[in-house]
Amino acid sequence: MLQVNNINVFYGKIHALKDVSLNVNQGEIVALIGANGAGKSTTLKTISGMLRSRTGDITFMDESISHIDPYKLISRGLAHVPEGRRVFLQMTVQENLEMGAYTCKDHTKEGLEDVYNRFPRLLHRKNQIAGTLSGGEQQMLAMGRALMGQPKLLMLDEPSMGLAPILVQFIFDMILELKSAGATILLVEQNAEMALKIADRAYVMESGRIVLSGTGEELANSDAIKKAYLGG
């Protein structure tokens, strides 16, 4: 579904991504794990066109998206929930969700029903300004907003960041639920243990490179990973 072939991304003179290649197949949860600054978020940003690669190619649904304007991706079915949630803090919960359906406004009504079903807490707060929500609620809103665009592939950047353990569990359960409903997910996480538990496959990044890949189970049991990320 998504193929990233050999991309190299620079921030000025800093070589942030080095020959990164990965792929995501229909119906999978693929996790991208690694330490801070390894290049995980940069990879997602390059896929969604906010950064450009100097080499290689990115294809989504068999079409190249390397040079497409970022705002056109959602209508092709690629949604990105950025790091730090980035909900519109001065708009209401419902307005945020409506923005999610900006490219498919006829779907707004069913979309809202679906999102409010999944996240009942958002329904209670639908006329509240998003800035007044808790971190967990903002994460739900960010995910709900992305779902409003009817994506085929959902890219989640650190959905568990800064959340209480019970909420982290809730978010991961939600990701599994989305998968069973047919969604394909590319998940960036620092919480490697949780991510590997739910991922079909995973890639490990280290200073801009992919250094390991395999099924979630394989990586969870690999000694190198245990040592580096799972505390021995």
């Binding site: 705002y71 056109k72 909900v87 001065q90 665009g149």
Partner: peptide, 22 residues
């Protein structure tokens, strides 16, 4: 819809683009 999109862009351009707003 356009007015709301303007508010969204004014708050966060990148996030607005991810919503499909040019």
């Amino acid at each position: 819809r356009v007015g709301k999109a303007m508010r969204a862009v004014s708050e966060d351009k990148e996030a607005a683009e991810l919503m499909g707003i040019s």
